[in-house]
Nucleic acid binder design. Structure first.
Length: 400
DNA sequence: GTTGAGCGTT
């Protein structure tokens, strides 16, 4: 896929980077006033020591509220996906926990201090994964959505629930492919994804008679390649439009978990979600001070929302999980309603024809369980890094 | 034998 949208100027890259440092500072200030959460007191909350993989002198990376921002790590070590450190007791390498959204490296249970960390580079782990067939098979066993799978085999890092979430986001997962043509064969299916990257596993689900069920799964060799797949809004496999997404795990709940968050803009801030995979961004046409950001997983959404607010270019944006709205809302008519919103809703029939296809809303919209297949909004007057990354084709005339 | 939102007999 082409990564050059003609509208975008390359210098947005610089613009994207410089505010990050401010963001960190501002966020740090803000979080000082917030709860210290469950983060342990560390002896040296300022910096952690990271060994340069090229063998140079160690580099100290600043922490942020007890954790290290992935952006900070990657700024010093391009291509880094994580950190590891040697466990003095066992001599084995321990990976540092990564926030489910991939935004933060979380402090080890016994803190950052007294450790020298080594950088995990994407290309290394990719190669390891590609060569290790054992990993591929064990990976196949891992279900994404079900949190009840008790794989306590290596859950010796304390908080096991969080660790599993980490693994889900730091490693590729089986992506579900919906809408596969019934006559599409496995070879064709696989070949399609190999155009995008290395396929570790793929499968079209079939009935006992061998006929296709119309969906399948694919696992890419790296999160990078996986993100590449996820960033493509509509896939064309064997002449048919298909959706590829992270499985929701509705087998547990009966309903899909929500991966969309409701973003309230403090001013005219742009959405900036750092390294999380954004599936969709919707900003209402007349700017109303909020937006929806759909992430590739509910975990990522929850993780980002758990910050309470995000500082974007120095401006604070409020976050919440997008509330599904049933037709018969259990709340009172004015509950949490943005001022003046309801009236507008009743008047704006034509616009609502589009908006009502939102699966989630801050409240007023009717809840329609539907994805964005045919109703993707073109981003309006955005110039955040997201534009370039998640609307890579710049093709507004795609026929869905 | 058809169909077209969905969530995987590994």
């Amino acid at each position: 896929m082409a990564d050059n949208s003609p509208r975008d100027e390359p210098k947005t890259e610089d613009d994207a980077k410089s505010p990050l440092d401010e963001v960190k500072d501002i966020r740090k200030e803000a979080e000082l006033t917030q709860t210290g959460s469950a983060v342990k007191q560390v002896a040296d909350p300022e910096f952690i020591t990271v060994q340069d993989p090229t063998g140079e002198e160690p580099i100290e990376l600043p922490t942020d509220d007890g954790s290290v921002l992935m952006t900070t790590l990657q700024a010093s070590f391009p291509g880094a996906t994580g950190l590891k450190y040697k466990n003095p007791k066992t001599g084995a390498n321990r990976a540092v926990q990564v926030d489910p959204s991939g935004l933060r490296l979380l402090a080890p249970a016994d803190g950052w201090e007294d450790k020298t960390f080594n950088v995990i580079i994407a290309s290394q782990s990719e190669r390891v994964r590609a060569l290790s067939s054992a990993d591929a098979t064990s990976a196949k066993r891992r279900k994404v959505g079900s949190s009840d799978d008790s794989d306590s085999d290596d859950g010796r890092d304390g908080r096991s629930g969080r660790k599993r979430a980490v693994e889900r986001d730091s490693q590729p997962v089986d992506l579900i492919v919906l809408g596969v043509d019934f006559k599409t064969g496995d070879e064709c299916f696989q070949k399609y994804f190999e155009e995008i990257g290395t396929v570790v596993f793929c499968e079209i689900k079939r009935k006992s008679d061998g006929s296709s069920k119309g969906f399948g799964f694919v696992r890419m060799a790296s999160v990078g390649e996986q993100n590449k797949v996820l960033a493509i809004p509509q896939h064309m496999i064997d002449g048919r439009r298909c959706d590829v997404k992270v499985p929701d795990g509705r087998d547990k709940q009966g309903r899909p978990s929500i991966s969309r968050i409701f973003v309230v803009f403090g001013d005219e801030a742009k959405v900036y979600v750092e390294t999380a995979v954004v599936t969709d961004v919707f900003i209402p046409k007349p700017f109303r001070g909020f937006a929806f950001v759909t992430l590739s997983s509910a975990e990522a959404a929850e993780s980002i929302v758990s910050k309470g607010s995000l500082t974007v270019n120095g401006l604070s944006v409020g976050l919440s999980i997008a509330q599904p709205r049933e037709e018969n809302q259990p709340f009172g008519p004015d509950y949490g309603l943005p001022a003046g919103y309801r009236n507008r809703r009743d008047r704006e029939r034509p616009e609502r024809r589009i908006n009502q296809n939102e699966s989630h809303s801050p409240l007023p919209m009717p809840f329609v369980r539907q994805d964005f297949g045919g109703y993707r909004q073109q981003p309006q007057q955005q110039n955040s890094p997201l534009d370039r990354r998640y609307w890579p084709t710049g093709d507004s005339n795609r026929q869905w």
